[in-house]
Amino acid sequence: MQIPENVKKRLSIPADEHFYAGHTACQGCGAALGLRYVLKTYGRKTIFTIPACCSTIIAGPWPYSTLDAPLFHTAFETTGAVMGGIEAALKAKGYKVKGEDGVMVVGWAGDGGTADIGLQALSGFLERGHDALYIMYDNEAYMNTGIQRSSSTPYGAWTTNTPGGKKHFLEKRHKKKVIDIVIAHEIPYAATASVAYPEDFIRKLKKAREIKGPSFIQLFAPCPTGWRAPTDKSIELARLAVQTAYFPLFEYENGKYKINMPSPKKEPKPIEEFLKLQGRFKYMTQEDIESLQNWVLREWEKLKKLAEVFG
């Protein structure tokens, strides 16, 4: 369907499509939706670096590509370094980088490829100040290899290598605060975002395009397959993650924190509301749930304090 130009201008989500239909993501995939928004916002003049992750498959096997933009598939741990090399080449060749008419260099990596094996390359990318955007789409486990825990997997979660069982062998650690590690590099811009709030995500993508230097977005991207959840619940889950303050939306810009919660005055919903829709949390005891709830509220208080002091 053709959308008239005057209508296009009023849309909060760009009408342009640069993510082709027929991709190979699972039903209800948050990552595929996120990638579609990135392509809608930036268009063709975007060079993607994608390491080993679900998006390797979603992008299609040779000779196909789901992305209507240049894409370099790379090794698991190298996203930050490859992006740095691409940005350096663009500078050497005199391309305008970033801005509406410039080239956008984007890294699109999962939580394993970012929080675990790719953390070193990410750190190098951030501290060297490359003019590019790194997006970690967070589906909270190694989903492409078949649901193994990553350091971004939440406390109490079932995965194929934290299978529960008689010994209650579940994920024992709370989710790694990757964004805090990123902010410790004192980069100009870092933010969390969620596929349940596309306008907020797109606004942050646009901001990252205008800011000079490295930027980072941690995008919450539900995985019904790995979370043992119904495929039509992805958006609801992503929304509940924000409403429970399990995954709060915020921005860090040049030393200042700003919380971007959709209903700022509301108290967080109980974490059970987020947990109960997902099979991965079904082995948690009441004690486990309390432990996770306490962690969520403690971290939420910490963030509010940061926004208050460094707002």
């Binding site: 063709r44 390797t56 299609g60 096997p61 040779w62 590509s65 992305l67 240049p70 370099f72 598939h73």
Partner: peptide, 8 residues
């Protein structure tokens, strides 16, 4: 736009 290194 090209894609380099896609699944073979």
């Amino acid at each position: 736009p090209i894609s380099v290194g896609a699944l073979g």
